[in-house]
């Protein structure tokens, strides 16, 4: 599994894990799980569209994910956030279905987009993945405190003069970038689980915000590495392992937290 044709899988998998762990922490904190579910579906439609017109799927992934994020961000100012998210999700899924019907894509390609493929990132795409990943992490680090503040107590943040709407939209765009990078590796249907499982477990186990982010990133990297290895060994889609491990981590954290609460000394 460490053969040279797997190099891209390990590199892109690690970048994706770092990013998803950091972004996912805020997704969970803000209760934006539904958006994290909707945006990958938009990205999926984008990839299908990219195959249709014959451009790089990464371009389709990024542009549609950002479009979905902006759609959610802008329309949630007018209606309730979950309704706006649901409408964006449905529109994107419909578009994806239409693209696939026109396109008659080769079935394994569709499967890879939906459930992930360890060899999903080609050599020509590895550089854009690194660049976008690094940019997203820098942006996230740059507005870490205002983002944390608006996630924890939006009213207090607004009173402190933070432009919370700008922070909200900027964050959704970062979610979109992270999604676009994650979908080719983990798959559109299960990208969501990588952004939710490890952060949800980390925030139960650790009570300091900075360490909880670090814990989330750590668990996310472990999840992805284990999933790549398992996917290689058992020849099952990587998304399956990511989803299963995410759920196990979360349940494990709940059990640990409960034992801590009942036996505070240990």
């Amino acid at each position: 599994m460490f053969a040279s044709f797997m190099t891209n899988a390990w590199i892109s998998g690690t970048i994706v894990a770092l990013l998803a762990g950091a972004v996912g922490f805020f997704v969970v904190l803000r209760g934006a799980s539904f958006a994290a579910h909707a945006i990958p579906n938009g990205a999926f439609a984008g990839a299908a569209g990219a195959y249709l017109v014959g451009i790089s799927p990464l371009v389709g992934l990024v542009s549609f994910a950002v479009l979905a994020a902006l759609g959610i961000g802008v329309s949630s100012r007018r209606t309730r956030n979950d309704v706006a998210t649901a409408l964006s999700l449905v529109a994107m899924l419909a578009l994806g279905a239409a693209f696939l019907a026109v396109n008659l894509l080769y079935e394994p390609t569709i499967n890879a987009l939906l459930f992930g493929e360890i060899l999903g990132v080609s050599s020509s795409q590895i550089l854009p993945v690194i660049v976008l990943g690094v940019v997203s992490v820098i942006v996230l680090a740059w507005f870490y405190r205002p983002l944390l503040f608006t996630s924890v107590a939006p009213e207090l943040a607004r009173a402190r003069g933070i432009a919370t709407t700008t922070v909200d939209v900027a964050f959704l765009v970062v979610v979109a970038l992270a999604t676009a990078l994650t979908v080719p590796v983990v798959g559109a249907l299960l990208t969501f689980s990588l952004m939710i499982g490890p952060p949800a477990a980390a925030r139960i186990l650790v009570s300091r915000p900075g360490w909880a982010v670090a814990g989330s990133i750590g668990l996310s990297v472990v999840t992805v590495w284990a999933s790549i290895a398992a996917s290689y060994l058992f020849n099952l889609p990587i998304g399956f392992f990511v989803g299963a491990l995410g759920a196990v981590l979360y349940l494990g954290a709940r059990v640990v937290a409960r034992r801590r609460a009942t036996h505070p000394a240990t």
Partner: peptide
């Protein structure tokens, strides 16, 4: 209740929660 923010973290955000940069 699951929010990973201690009382002291919330107080600190009152001082620098509006600052960009890490």
């Amino acid at each position: 209740p699951d929010l990973p923010i201690r009382a002291r973290d919330l107080v600190a955000l009152g001082a620098d929660g509006h600052r960009y940069g890490l």
